[in-house]
Simulated assay, not measured.
Amino acid sequence: MTDKELNLRAGLAAFSDADRVVPVNLDEFDPLNSRDDLIKLLVETGISFSRPREGVIAAEISESSFEVAIQGDAVAAAARAACELAASWIDDDDVKAWNIATGRFAR
């Protein structure tokens, strides 16, 4: 999955309602690279973090988690883990429905 797709799925997980209405511009939402967007993602989803072992950070919520190896930048690893976890809640049908709802392509 590309970073753009990961950001899109994380944004859909954080912000979309049942009608696929999203109150933020997902074309510009970039929690992988923007600290402000990362904070928005964390606030909306309730994702938190732990360090299950040396050199690893885990994004967690309830019974779900996603671990990423820290390779120099712990915040970048945390952002990746949070986005991967949030994105895991969105399937291809959700993305397709959002694209249709926003007029990005016809059925």
Rank of each mutant, 00 (worst) to 15 (best):
G55K: 10
D36I: 09
R51A: 10
L42P: 00
V24T: 08
D27K: 13
I47R: 01
R53K: 15
R51T: 12
E28Q: 14
A13W: 05
D27T: 12
E28K: 14
A18D: 08
A59N: 00
V21W: 05
E44I: 08
S50G: 15
A18P: 01
S48R: 13
N25I: 10
R53L: 10
D19H: 00
L26Y: 03
S34W: 04
A58T: 11
D36S: 10
A59Y: 05
A58P: 08
A18Q: 09
A59S: 04
A59E: 04
L38D: 02
S34Q: 08
V21K: 11
D37H: 11
E44S: 10
I57D: 07
I57E: 04
V43K: 06
I47E: 03
S50Y: 10
V56R: 12
I39T: 13
A13Q: 02
F15R: 07
R20C: 08
R51H: 12
E54R: 13
L38A: 11
A59M: 06
E60F: 10
E28H: 13
D37V: 08
P52I: 13
L41C: 09
I39L: 13
D36A: 13
L41T: 06
S34T: 07
E60R: 15
V43E: 08
V56A: 12
I47A: 10
R51D: 09
E54V: 13
F29M: 09
L26N: 04
S34C: 07
R51C: 10
N25C: 13
N25D: 15
I61E: 05
A18N: 03
S16V: 04
I61S: 01
F29R: 02
S16L: 03
L32Q: 07
I39Q: 14
D37Q: 05
A14M: 06
D36M: 08
S34L: 06
K40C: 06
D37A: 07
V24Y: 08
V21G: 00
A14I: 01
L32W: 00
R20Y: 15
F15D: 04
A58Q: 14
L32Y: 07
L32T: 03
V43L: 07
N33P: 00
R20A: 04
S16Q: 15
P52N: 13
E54M: 12
S48P: 05
I47H: 00
